[in-house]
Simulated scan of single mutants.
Amino acid sequence: MTALPVLHIDAHMLVIDKPAGLAVHAGPKTPRSLDDRLGELAFGFRRLPQPAHRLDRDTSGCLVLARHPKAAKRLGQLFAAGAVAKTYLAVLDGIPAEPEGRIAAPLAKVSSAEAGWRMVVGEGGKPAATRWRLLAAHGGQALVAFFPETGRTHQIRVHAAHALAPIAGDPVYGGGKGPMRLHSAGLVIPYREDAPVSVSAALPADWPLWAREAAANEKGPPFRATPSA
């Protein structure tokens, strides 16, 4: 079993590069999860670290874990307040008409016995907003950086499909052919306001070469995460 890559570690938190396919928590359809591997991430602490937020099973990249209860409370407050700046990268099955923009569309959860649950854009939903920027296009697909201002379930996946194009490989909101191409590429965590932790994770090696090259060549803002207003 391959060790989970650690991108950052200190006395309060650690950030791992979560592989796609690994669920953060166990569930009816995900009996194997990160819960089974927390012992690998104790690094001398008696308490096992605990995830401070969630990533979808098929989303890769930066995942924060708290190393003690006070850190769990502090990190939970930061994520809930939108103080943690997030940058995601995604390959879309289509090319946006504009170079950048902002999607403001409320999200609500719906479910049925036949199709299960999913998130939809609807007037009765919770407010949700996502900034985005086109980084590259190739063969009818696009590499887009997303900067969520809120943290709703499946927010980027639904906003992309609603306003731009579905994320490649998305089994719920897209065609579902092949692995889903959504990656948590960067976080800025103001655990201490005077010394925020900035972490980034490169695109996985199984992503298309053109996307990996475009991401590697992108240096300046707004690619890096910045706190939402």
Score class of each variant (00 low, 15 high):
T2M: 11
A3M: 09
L4W: 01
L7Q: 09
V15D: 10
D17Q: 03
P19A: 01
G21S: 09
H25N: 06
A26D: 02
T30E: 14
R32F: 12
R32V: 14
D35Q: 14
D36W: 05
L38G: 03
L38F: 03
E40F: 00
L41G: 03
L41V: 08
F45M: 13
R47E: 08
P51F: 10
H53C: 04
R54F: 11
R54C: 10
L55F: 11
D58V: 01
S60C: 08
L63E: 03
L63K: 02
H68R: 07
P69I: 01
A71K: 00
A72N: 10
R74S: 13
G76D: 05
Q77C: 01
A83N: 10
Y88V: 00
A90T: 03
A90D: 05
A90L: 05
P99D: 12
G101E: 04
R102K: 12
A104P: 01
S112P: 04
A113E: 09
A113V: 05
V121N: 14
G122Q: 05
E123V: 04
K126Q: 15
R133Q: 15
L134A: 14
L134F: 13
L134C: 13
T150A: 15
G151P: 11
H154Y: 08
Q155A: 04
A161N: 13
A161M: 14
A163Q: 12
L164Q: 09
L164I: 08
I167P: 01
G169P: 07
V172A: 12
G174D: 11
G174H: 10
G175N: 09
G175K: 07
G175S: 13
G175T: 04
K177A: 13
K177W: 02
R181L: 04
R181P: 02
I189K: 09
D194C: 04
A195G: 05
P196G: 08
P196D: 07
V197G: 08
V197I: 12
V199T: 08
S200W: 14
S200E: 14
L203C: 10
L203K: 09
P204M: 03
P204V: 03
A205Q: 14
A205C: 11
W207A: 02
P208Q: 09
L209Y: 00
L209E: 13
W210I: 02
R212F: 05
R212Q: 06
A215T: 00
E218V: 00
F223T: 00
R224G: 13
T226H: 14
